[in-house]
Design a protein around this nucleic acid. Sequence first.
DNA 1: ACGCGTCATGTAACCGGTTACATGACGCAC
DNA 2: GTGCGTCATGTAACCGGTTACATGACGCGT
Lengths: 351, 351
Amino acid sequence: MTFAPIAADKAVFNPLDPGESMPEATIRDVARRAQLSVATVSRVLNGFENVSEQARERVTEAVRDLGYVPHAGARSLSLARTNAIGVVLPDLHGEFFSEIVRGMDREASRRGYLLLLSNLHGSTEQAALALRAMHGRVDGLIVMAPTLSSRDLAAALPSRLPSVLINTRGVGTGHASIHLDNAAGVAAVVEHLASLGRRRLVHVAGPEGNMDADERAHAFQEACAARGLGCEILRGDFGQASGEQSVAELVASGREFDGLFAGNDNMAIGALQALQDAGKWVPTDVAVVGFDDIPLARHLGLTTVRVRIAELGERALVRLLAVMAKADGGGEELHAPELVIRNTTGEENGA
Amino acid sequence: MTFAPIAADKAVFNPLDPGESMPEATIRDVARRAQLSVATVSRVLNGFENVSEQARERVTEAVRDLGYVPHAGARSLSLARTNAIGVVLPDLHGEFFSEIVRGMDREASRRGYLLLLSNLHGSTEQAALALRAMHGRVDGLIVMAPTLSSRDLAAALPSRLPSVLINTRGVGTGHASIHLDNAAGVAAVVEHLASLGRRRLVHVAGPEGNMDADERAHAFQEACAARGLGCEILRGDFGQASGEQSVAELVASGREFDGLFAGNDNMAIGALQALQDAGKWVPTDVAVVGFDDIPLARHLGLTTVRVRIAELGERALVRLLAVMAKADGGGEELHAPELVIRNTTGEENGA
DNA sequence: ACGCGTCATGTAACCGGTTACATGACGCAC
DNA sequence: GTGCGTCATGTAACCGGTTACATGACGCGT
């Protein structure tokens, strides 16, 4: 426990009581205090074997005395490795956001990565800015940008940064990406409605330009056509209010329909409200189906398409790490959603 | 649009078709190509005025040709400023997580900051590790660690990094922090139940050691005592299942009660289920109140205490920036929640 | 005594930016 | 022509780590 007096080169200070104004201790301060070189300190800190026991102790002690904490940013720079993953998401409805982030976080923290979050609201230029800001701070990128055109995305994506796309128009073929199999989900919905004898279907779609909204609307049209069912498409914006309003207007117009498929659960809930207000019975008069299976859906007995959101995030992270390790050749991965049948298309329900 | 042939020092390449193996362009590459010094390039990139129009053009062109993107990590190192805020959260139930992150993100992106996310599951050592990993990557820290003791937190918190605590046991006095006024919320609940004539109250508390759970349980006890009400406390873990189970056991034991206050909405929902299964009527037999006001609560008609979660996150970020700018003297800020009265304590309801 | 290998340690370059300071060109007043 | 201020530009140090390579001590076989 003895050590020579230290030649403090700036000022005298008490190591156990870090003054507010004292600059952060660096590895060089530790080296000086331990009377060793920075190389040795670095070796101790990183657990190398070729260090004498004595040196190891002296370093450990100096670190403790100075309250030294390595500077992760500097470390990243010299290692060209940050241990962080950039996550760029659009403005998402609550449940979806937290679930997908939770899925990523679970895998990330298991493997010692941090998540650097950036939201993608606004224009294409802002998107480019957000993506650029990631360069040099992350080892890889997970991007979910359902409204970005594939051209804009290609322009904005730092070309040499490994990345995985989620529900995003691909950048050329072969880019590692994960997609929800919207077509399969929608096909299951339409088949289910048809099997219940519904013949005049209406779809309240999400906002135009949103990839998921467009895919679902398109698949709906296809599926109806394939079965010769009546089919109409309204536009909402994925918000509950828009579902309510669209359906209220539809009912007011007097057009007949017996099956309603909303682009997501939020809008389905709005639609249920509108139907109730209009005195329509669910499912007797109109069968209603949503998409996503948010927790509310279960409580409301809403038939819907279950998307395992957290799993999507988890897979994205796992694949990104594989891409980074050059162990993933790229390519699109489809996640098949699953139809969950509940009261709004099944047994009687007051709604 | 003319420029001299470039003496490429490594290999010949086509700048418009970045080869896979080509190393990232750095500011020095840009300087070389523009036939200027790195200083001038840096000045152009950062919008300094003292650069000739000609130099500005040459740099812009070189940047475009090389597809140069500044290395944010290197920039941070030399500026000692990262434009990122570290956010350390515990494992949170979905709605709470996404809301608080959304609130922070809204303010952060408005002010040009990114969010570096780290979850705080597990032991005290892991917590320390997570906090340390932030050093040198962020300009400030928002910490929510309701289970950490104030001693452990003090040890783990990088001392010279500005930070704001949310619902976390303070590190000494005067640390900038934001707290939910649990006592006020609980007092309102008990007063409400008392005003309905309920006399034998039960509280299903969150897990022991969790700051919010403990504060709510304690406030409940105080409030009941102050009014001379019967009062019993059960322990749950904030999960829906634990609420259901606790109440099922309570009912099975035959103890009488006419008012139930759950530590959060999740457990209140479980409790409603248990009461329904036991044939008890809500609110006739038992009035039920939750805490948080998650979206489900509204749909279920659950009386609860509304916490404006996103606002909490937003305020935390705003205060952190103030602390960083030395414009915030620290101190505790209480957010008063608001009682929302719905069917589970009001008009008749089938549940 | 010599040569050689092993091993702990140190020196200094490097990662990719920023910037204090030096430099040199130019215009202008005398 | 000289001196000075202004201004664009360049040089090199610096941020805080890592690490290739150099060094020198030591042990061992001959």
